[in-house]
Design a protein around this nucleic acid. Sequence first.
DNA 1: CGTAATCGGGG
DNA 2: GTGTACGATTACG
Length: 769
Amino acid sequence: MELKVRIVAASYRREDVAVELFGRTEDNRSVTVLYRGFRPHFDVIEPDDIYLKHLKDAGQFVSSEEKKLWYEGSYRNALRIYVRSPWEVPNLKKMTDKPVLAADIPFHHRFIYDMDLGACTSVTGEINSKEEKNFTTEMVIDATAFSQCEQFNPPLKILSFDIENSIQTQEIYVIGYAIYDGSSYVKGAITGSEKEILQKFVELISREDPDILTGYNIDGYDLPLIEDRMKKHGVRFAIGRDDGIPRRIQNQYWRVHGRVISDTWWNVKKILHPKNESLNAVAKEMLGEGKDNINRLKIEEEWQARRQEVIEYCIKDAYLTLEIFMKLRVPERSMFMASVSKLPLEDVMNGGTSNYVDSILIREADRMDVGVPLTVYRDKGDAITGGYVKSIGAGIYRNVIVLDFKSMYPSMIIKYNICFTTLNPEGQIIAPNGIRFLSPDVRQGLIPKILKDLMQQRDDVKAKMKRSDPKDRAFYDGIQNAVKVLMNTFYGVLASSFYRFTNPEIGAAVTAFARNTITGLIEKLISEGNKVIYGDTDSIFIESGNESLEETVRYGEMLSEKLSREENLSLEFEKVFDPFFSHGAKKRYAGKIVYPYDQAGTTLVRGYEVRRTDSFDLQSEALSKVFSLILDNKPDEAVAYAREIVEKVQRGEGIPISKLVISRSVKDVREYEKKESHNLANVRVAKKMLEMGETFVPGMKVSWIVTNGKKTPQEVEPYIEGNQFPYTPDWSYYAKRLEETLSRVTEGIDQQSESRLGNKNGQVTLDSY
DNA sequence: CGTAATCGGGG
DNA sequence: GTGTACGATTACG
């Protein structure tokens, strides 16, 4: 039989060294695919006989094959060695002094690369009916062959769960869940004795057989706690598709055979960067709905007094989490990324980006007989020089055109044939940092070739997208966007300090070419009479001399068209700001978008941190107000407002204490003792609260007011909502902090404001009031 | 100023 | 499991 499968996760088992692929078929069934007989292998440059003897003595040698591999600038004699046990390879690679290549590739990846599997793959095989292992999937297949197939996004089954447990005793009261299978939601809760809850939880996952497990902060909270309670009750934490148990990787995320464990909290952080990352805040923001009203800090009492409400609350948390997960389109986006990088979903969702590059690059290297070096650790210290950033003068600018290079770094790599396979002192292409590359007609670089293919692939997909009907359009758009991400990832790993193909000189050559390109262009623009006000890496900001928006847009279109043609590069006219403001620091600006028209009216603030964890409400409110006045073309009012509010705070007039509150959470007070961290304001506040007889539970957020900021450490007093605050805030401290924040911005408006709100060094002179 | 430690979410 | 893998912020030296 033949099945088309979207691979969710890949692994292997030791017993018979069978590779296990788990996934969902095109007709929406979960499946386990087993393949036996694949051998681990790695390459050694010019090995000696004694090494082969050692391998044989260790009972690991299976066979070998002579190769010629491109290694450090030339083709060398190499031996591809096939061995018995994947888990022995780390030891075997240490048993020789000769260069060992491709000996740190996880076995299931080696399999996927060698078989050239895609994220979706056509599997030929037979139903396995006598498999003794307890797989939870609908089918188990013994595979005999694999072939390419088109990519598809099946409706994955996702299970979100949440626990309520005692803070005092850790006992789990209830596990709530919500399941989405692509068409409908199912919700429920598991109650009973703790042991029953745990057993039923394992049964639920085994019966429902979800592809993805999620929840809010499950990586760091729910899963460790469940693991702990399972151990206590002697229940096997068997939630894998092979009946296996999950393991925590690097004290961070979790891995279990056959499923993806993806914490919604992490996805929220990565995609949304919200100021407040709590489930309640994120749900309100995204879904317009918050959590139920349960006092989590008194969960024991709540469980006794209003059990049913706690259960409902628990289910709701699981459901809200699932909705957020879906609304962020995590599964969909990950499937697109998996398709273009040809990886199982799990590697995309939980692995690092170097996986993407490995998957594409190692396959191509194998086809071209290029040796695949091991990952070596380099000093992180000498980071390469990055992009060019033009300094910007303080002020308000009108009708600012933004031009963007399309895929700047990939274009540089292709144009100058930049690659570890073309690096050569005889090369005709000389990078600004002095290193040389062979020209493409002498030797086409591996990475440039891959990027060229990816660019072509992206253009093809975009063209297809235009021709297709609306329902397919979103699919192609997802693919083309993932290709773009993948292309940029290639530069990312070249510049990173640890990747198998990393060479700092090569990364530096890419950015050096890019800097030359953009500075050359800026010079040209200026020589033609343009007012270039700013630029960063791959963008150029020009203050158009035109009065009207229509003229500005026409001018922007003309510039991008003319420059792209004249300079033979791809420069896009991206947007127009009006007004555009900066106080004179790189990477910090704010502007109102007026073009493209569908974004008109949006305010874009870059680099100015309106939200800071240690800021008080008044600070962020005042800063936002100042920005909005500036961008409404009322700079004078902005300066006046800033001045007024600072004065008010200095005098302590009419400012509600609540707007000065600084909050932060505190772990168990004892955890800070040994680390000399008791100077931390939040820790001191927690201690004071305990002394005052206030409720303090480890992990709780505490709030305080600074009463003397001049002392070290500063004096702080707990702020307890609802209670009268019996101390006087250090008004000067607050005025100073507020002024530091506001003056940085108002300084930029004009020269006079500098004397009004502070001096040029950013130092504050309160005397001026 | 650069580096090491801590936090955030969860109950 | 042939894998070293959070980002931003703050305190400390």
